[in-house]
Amino acid sequence: MLYVVLFFLMFSLLLYVILAGADFGAGIVELFSSQKNRHLTKKTVYRVMGPVWEANHIWIILMIVILWVGFPNFYNVLVVYLHIPLTLILLGITLRGVAFVFRHYDAYQDQSQILYDWMFRISSLITPIFLGMTFGAMVSGQIVITEDYTNFTFYSLFIQPWLNGFSVLVGLFFAALCAFLATILLIGEVDENTPNIYLKKAKIATLVVVISGFLVLSFGFVQEVYFITNFMQNSYSLGLVALSAVLIFPLLYSIKKEFQIASRTFAGIQVVLVLIAAIIAHFPNLIITTTSEISLLETTATDEVISVLGISLIIGGAIILPGLFHLFKSFNMIKILE
């Protein structure tokens, strides 16, 4: 059962990164578009994401619930020591969700749209940066676990672990990944009559991903971030990253040939590969503190709890996945029919 639970944890992580990532990315693309393209992006995003965007964000809740039920001690370290970036993520998710609804459901389309739009775009950029920073902080080796709150400053316990060069770079890298996913998605959604502005953006985004990824690795290497040195010695991780890099070529090819499904699949696979590479580099010790490593698996709940959780997830999955699949499918079909 533990494997079932782990599977769902991974599965929701990957889906969250891909679906919500593309969703965040759409906002980032909108932010970095010229005045007139912004409007086009906004309309396209709404058409593509409208029916599904809410569902995209539930994966993070699923992850949290799995963590707190199945891996309580692991979760405990996260919520105590990464309280601040997690709160900032929350703030971003809240503002972004609200802005999305406001700008599409307000009864009147007037000046206030400007406010909603900016709120949407900026929180779309900030949230994935903080998400990435949180992950960076987990593995940065700077978390100090202690009961003794008098000998440490607030800064060194609760801020330093996430507000440092390495974590910030991971944050930027993640935001770039999101933008990359979004541009690939959007390429396929432009109608024939308008010039496809996303081709160029996709190329820029790919470049930014590669550069920021390189920066993360080299910065980590120079600073001797333990996770990165390990990552570089792990042949599986390296292999996966290399594979992901090689996939850029078929991706570019299918973009050029306008194979929508193929290009989306390649982009999705690339992101999944990078993520898996990062996770297996140090699995299961996914929190690295100044003095020790905390394993996801050493801290599991009891067997009964894990099996009830596993069963709930299987039942839930059996209900949700077909529905979700149908939702995606129905609205795609409708688009084709129109």
Partner: peptide
């Protein structure tokens, strides 16, 4: 968490 996780999941 492990005890009341069920209603939440």
């Amino acid at each position: 968490g492990p005890i009341i996780g069920m209603p939440f999941s």
